[in-house]
Amino acid sequence: MMELLTTHYNYVVFAVLLGIGLYMIIDDENLVKKVIGLNVFQTGIFLFFITISVRDGGLPAVGKGSESAYVNPLPHVLILTAIVVGVSLTALALALVVRIHEEYGSIREDVVVEVLEDE
């Protein structure tokens, strides 16, 4: 068990981050915090991808390809683009939150549900 922890600690953190993000998405009444939770979940997955690309003594993949001890650049590319898409989607989610606030006067889910039930 201890041995597993020393060789897989990043994966444990990855699982914990997913759990925290999921909790925020499900339970938090504040819509902006839900969006933050989505981002925490997302960065957890980034951690998984980057961790799997690491190799001991590996260098960042910048150079003319003579050395062979590079970390794997492919997950970096995937995550790089995922971060940028992530911020675009976050902005869209926030725009929807702002819109919801305009319509219902609150960014709390329970209040919005209440307003909807009153109608």
Partner: peptide
């Protein structure tokens, strides 16, 4: 593209919630 979109996103979000 990224610079333009980020600028647009920022201003839209900052100004979008203004009272009608």
């Amino acid at each position: 593209t990224v610079a333009g979109v980020v600028i647009v996103l920022f201003f839209q979000l900052a100004r979008g919630a203004m009272p009608p």
